[in-house]
């Protein structure tokens, strides 16, 4: 019963954080609300007894990836965009209504489905006897999922190299001269010209 109450509480907090993320004007506020959502999702992982994943969620998601975002936001000085219109003028209402409709569709479908557990037998009791969540998790990862694990490392390497190449400045081009300084609000004509 306690688990249910906590699940509902953390679930609603996660949803509130998500709604805040997509509705804030200030990108840094949206990012902080996103971190809040991730922490609540980590709490839900804890409630599901996926302890290792809960820790990874906090360390990697709420920690590393969000620091990356904060760093780039700092680098780009995004405050100038707060005055601009934040939503697509033509499609925003259609998009909102469609999202709610698809959510209603999900709920209707899920309400009519009954699931049967496969009961593979790795219950929390068995896990705690076998040495804890991280132990069982690691054994499964390195025995059954070894090839996908190695492929994931290649994916990360490719992403790293790709990111470096994308941000690297072209030496020969020298960069187009810009008619305003970073941080200054550019005039619409200047934006139009450069675009």
């Amino acid at each position: 019963m306690t688990e249910k109450i906590l699940f509902v509480a953390f679930g609603y907090l996660a949803l509130a954080g998500g709604l805040g993320t997509i509705s804030r004007k200030n990108v840094v506020h949206a990012l902080l609300l996103l971190v809040f959502t991730f922490l609540n999702v980590a709490a839900i992982f804890f409630l599901t007894q996926a302890y290792f994943l809960a820790v990874v969620q906090i360390l990697v998601y709420a920690g590393a990836i969000m620091v990356l975002f904060v760093f780039v936001i700092m680098l780009l000085n995004l405050r100038t965009f707060e005055q601009e219109e934040q939503t697509h003028r033509r499609q925003r209402w259609a998009a909102a209504i469609l999202s709610v409709l698809v959510l209603a569709e999900f709920v209707v479908v899920l309400a009519g489905v009954t699931f049967t557990s496969a009961k593979n037998g790795i219950t929390p009791e068995i896990i705690s006897q076998a040495g804890g969540n991280a132990n069982v998790f690691g054994k499964a990862l390195f025995n059954q999922q070894l090839l996908p694990f190695e492929v994931a490392s290649v994916v990360l390497l490719v992403a790293m190299v790709g990111a470096i190449i994308l941000v690297k400045r072209e030496k020969s081009a020298g960069g187009a001269p810009r008619s305003w300084e970073p941080g200054e609000q550019p005039s619409p004509e200047a934006v139009e010209e450069e675009v």
Partner: peptide, 11 residues
């Protein structure tokens, strides 16, 4: 769906 709405609505 909150994520989908965010992708569709925000600029």
């Amino acid at each position: 769906m909150i994520g989908v709405a965010g992708v569709l609505i925000r600029r």
